[in-house]
Amino acid sequence: MATGGRRGAAAAPLLVAVAALLLGAAGHLYPGEVCPGMDIRNNLTRLHELENCSVIEGHLQILLMFKTRPEDFRDLSFPKLIMITDYLLLFRVYGLESLKDLFPNLTVIRGSRLFFNYALVIFEMVHLKELGLYNLMNITRGSVRIEKNNELCYLATIDWSRILDSVEDNYIVLNKDDNEECGDICPGTAKGKTNCPATVINGQFVERCWTHSHCQKVCPTICKSHGCTAEGLCCHSECLGNCSQPDDPTKCVACRNFYLDGRCVETCPPPYYHFQDWRCVNFSFCQDLHHKCKNSRRQGCHQYVIHNNKCIPECPSGYTMNSSNLLCTPCLGPCPKVCHLLEGEKTIDSVTSAQELRGCTVINGSLIINIRGGNNLAAELEANLGLIEEISGYLKIRRSYALVSLSFFRKLRLIRGETLEIGNYSFYALDNQNLRQLWDWSKHNLTITQGKLFFHYNPKLCLSEIHKMEEVSGTKGRQERNDIALKTNGDQASCENELLKFSYIRTSFDKI
């Protein structure tokens, strides 16, 4: 039985969820670079991206490699990797027998973001014989899940209580170790020597080791999670996991709180800001991140802002960003909400898709409305799209047979046209069989910064309504002859009103 693990408890099935942008060198404390989270699957090609990484700022997932063999891993080693800020997950990587050479110096898994409450997941690794993470000293947050690894031993010899604050939620089941077939031998045991430290858990006094050649490092209890030197002297209180010299914040392997210019500090002093819960960055760093993602459509890219001495992905609820200094300031009234469309555009074809934009005031991208039916549609669209004030790209209304009016965009005031449909149009209306009105132009103002209007096959939309939009939106004169079809717009509506004058002759039985 794995020490510190839980057996036999019912657990939810383990679901495996399925960018080499360097964020800056980590400095003297770390020998390499800070790398983003990685999802490495199918083959070993991307694994080489770990070569210079000291910190993975995010998670590391290595999974679904069915053609790899043990010899493929023999020359692979990433000794610079010290810390993973989120979680480490391995799933069905064939041929991998140990992690001792792959990650010989991995010391800390912070667990800032977890995989279903777990910071370390080893699942269905069919050839893994031992973990071998002999320098792993601290899992700051989260638990361990090690399950269905039929060859995995050296679990009962690990004292997880020396690595985690609590072992109650560890789930370590259905491994070879369960069948008591392992016969784990710690260093020196074969020669009758006791080389590794022994600890007591559940009444068992057991030597602690990761492999037959690597003991588990056990520091004096007084050192807590700070770690200790090879001689057993406690590291500085700002260290986490390990250090090369005692009581020196510049000799830590990793930091308990924050890293700044080669030393570990309790908090980031001005003019620095907390970033990702582990390091200090200056304003320029946060500003660069903001600008890199301002026009990016890459998933996970955030326009970072500053709030409460932190550089964070977005302002919290009730705050909006001051564009001059990136500071989050309290909103006066309802907060603006910028919604970034991942692929640059979004099609609204149902109430469900409209709900995804609920509360958005600025759309960074283009909207395509293609709704053919739905219950209580006008009210639903207004509830979900009615706060949109600005669209950076274009607005396209296409084959939306259920629409009679666009009044559900009740606050839309600006279409920038930074991206144009077919390279020309910022407003595009095609084949809307029941569209009769755009907006009530006596109450609604709309500016279209650039781009043209396109109207074709809107049989109940009168040309007068379209011409009014040209005047109000500032697009009059931009359109070419064929942009607004004269014969297919309003051709099934009563669009022309003329005053009919009647004269009559009164007659009676005795007068003409």
Rank of each mutant, 00 (worst) to 15 (best):
L29N: 06
N43G: 10
H59M: 06
C196V: 06
L332W: 13
V206A: 06
I158R: 03
H28I: 06
P271D: 05
H307W: 10
L152R: 01
Q245H: 10
K100G: 07
L289W: 04
T199P: 05
C255L: 01
Q204M: 14
V34N: 02
G32N: 05
C264M: 01
Y134T: 05
D159I: 05
P70H: 10
S296P: 05
D177C: 09
K148R: 10
P104C: 01
P104G: 03
L136A: 01
L76E: 06
C235Q: 00
C335L: 02
A254D: 10
L60R: 00
P316K: 03
S225D: 03
C280V: 02
F285A: 06
R113G: 09
P31N: 13
V167A: 13
H226F: 15
A156T: 06
L29A: 12
V200F: 10
V144M: 05
K67L: 05
L155E: 02
N282L: 09
F115T: 01
P220Y: 04
D165W: 12
Q204L: 07
M137F: 08
T229P: 09
C243D: 00
Y273A: 13
C243R: 01
H28Q: 10
V305Q: 03
I62Q: 01
C228S: 02
C255R: 00
L289I: 15
I56T: 03
P316V: 06
Q303N: 11
N42Q: 00
L44S: 10
T199S: 09
I62E: 00
S225L: 05
Y30V: 13
P313T: 10
W210R: 02
L289E: 04
E314M: 04
N150S: 12
D261I: 05
Y87Q: 04
L99P: 00
C280D: 00
S317D: 08
T250R: 12
N202I: 03
L44V: 12
K148V: 01
N295Q: 03
F73V: 02
V265T: 11
I122S: 09
L102Y: 02
D288Q: 14
R263S: 12
K129L: 02
Y304W: 15
E97R: 14
C264T: 00
A198T: 07
P79D: 07
V218G: 05
L96K: 02
R92H: 00
S77R: 12
C186Y: 09
N308W: 11
N242K: 06
T320Q: 13
L96H: 00
C280Y: 00
L260T: 12
F78V: 04
C255D: 00
H59T: 01
G183C: 15
G227C: 02
S317Q: 07
F103K: 02
W210S: 03
D277M: 07
L136P: 00
M137Q: 12
N309H: 09
I139A: 01
I158N: 01
D75I: 04
E168F: 08
T329C: 09
G37H: 03
Q287L: 04
T107E: 07
E49T: 14
L29H: 15
G300I: 14
H59I: 02
D178Y: 11
L240T: 14
P316R: 02
S98P: 03
C209L: 01
S166G: 08
Q204F: 13
C239I: 01
L326N: 13
L88N: 01
K251R: 13
S317K: 04
N257A: 10
R110S: 13
T229R: 08
C264H: 02
L60N: 00
M83Q: 07
M83K: 04
I185Q: 05
Q276M: 07
P313L: 02
P197Q: 15
Y30I: 00
L136K: 00
I201D: 06
A230E: 14
L44N: 07
F116L: 00
R92F: 01
S317M: 05
N242F: 05
T107H: 07
V265M: 10
G262Y: 01
F66W: 03
T85I: 05
R41T: 00
L155S: 03
E314I: 00
T68K: 04
F103W: 06
Y273W: 08
C255G: 01
R41F: 00
L131K: 00
L90R: 01
C301F: 05
S77Y: 08
R74P: 00
Q216T: 05
N149H: 00
P313K: 11
L89I: 05
K224F: 07
N135G: 09
I84K: 03
H48L: 10
L164E: 07
G58P: 00
P36Q: 13
D247H: 15
R256M: 11
R298F: 06
I222A: 14
V126A: 01
Q303R: 12
E151T: 00
H290S: 04
C53G: 04
C328P: 02
N242E: 12
K251L: 07
N295I: 00
G132E: 00
R110Y: 06
E314Y: 04
P246L: 14
A190I: 08
C196F: 03
P36C: 15
N117Q: 04
S323H: 14
S77D: 03
P270W: 13
Q61I: 02
W278Y: 12
F258A: 14
A254S: 07
K191F: 15
C219H: 01
I306G: 12
L102W: 02
N150Q: 09
C153E: 03
L136G: 00
L326C: 15
S112Y: 01
V144P: 03
C209N: 02
L332A: 14
N170S: 07
I139D: 00
Q216K: 02
R263G: 12
D165C: 14
E168M: 13
E33I: 12
K224V: 07
T199A: 09
L133P: 00
E314P: 03
H291P: 01
Y319A: 07
N43F: 13
L128Q: 10
F283K: 13
C186E: 03
Q204P: 09
T329Y: 08
P70F: 05
L50I: 09
G241A: 06
L133S: 07
G188D: 07
K176V: 05
G132Y: 01
T329P: 05
I222T: 15
N308S: 07
K67Y: 07
C209I: 03
P269S: 10
G37N: 09
K148G: 00
E97P: 06
R46S: 11
D101G: 05
N170G: 10
I146D: 00
S213G: 07
T189C: 06
W210L: 03
M38C: 02
P197W: 03
C293S: 07
C328W: 01
T211G: 00
Q287P: 13
L102M: 13
N295G: 13
D159T: 02
L102H: 00
H59N: 04
L136T: 02
L233G: 09
S324V: 10
P104H: 00
C243L: 02
N42V: 00
Y118S: 01
C228I: 02
H307L: 07
Y171W: 03
P31Q: 02
S112K: 12
V121K: 00
F78R: 04
I146M: 08
N43H: 10
L99H: 01
N309C: 03
W278P: 01
R279P: 00
T199R: 07
C186L: 04
L326F: 15
G262H: 08
D39S: 07
S77N: 05
P330N: 03
Y94K: 02
W278H: 06
I122T: 06
N202A: 10
C215H: 00
V93T: 02
G227T: 08
Q303A: 09
E181S: 06
P336S: 08
N308H: 15
I56P: 01
C268L: 01
R298M: 05
N105A: 04
I139K: 00
L44F: 09
Q216A: 03
L326E: 03
E49C: 14
H307V: 06
S77V: 07
G318E: 06
F66I: 00
R92W: 04
G183K: 04
T194W: 02
L155F: 02
H290P: 04
P316Y: 03
H290G: 07
E130N: 13
L289F: 07
C153A: 02
F283W: 06
D248H: 06
L120E: 00
S244R: 09
E238P: 01
D165A: 09
V218A: 11
R69L: 03
L332V: 09
K224P: 03
N295K: 15
Q276C: 02
S213F: 14
H214F: 12
H236K: 02
H236F: 06
M321P: 13
I122D: 00
L260P: 03
C311R: 04
G192C: 07
M137C: 13
L174M: 12
L96V: 05
H290F: 12
G37Y: 03
I109F: 01
A230K: 12
R297S: 09
E124N: 00
N282Q: 05
A230W: 13
S323C: 08
N170H: 05
F91E: 00
P79N: 06
T329G: 14
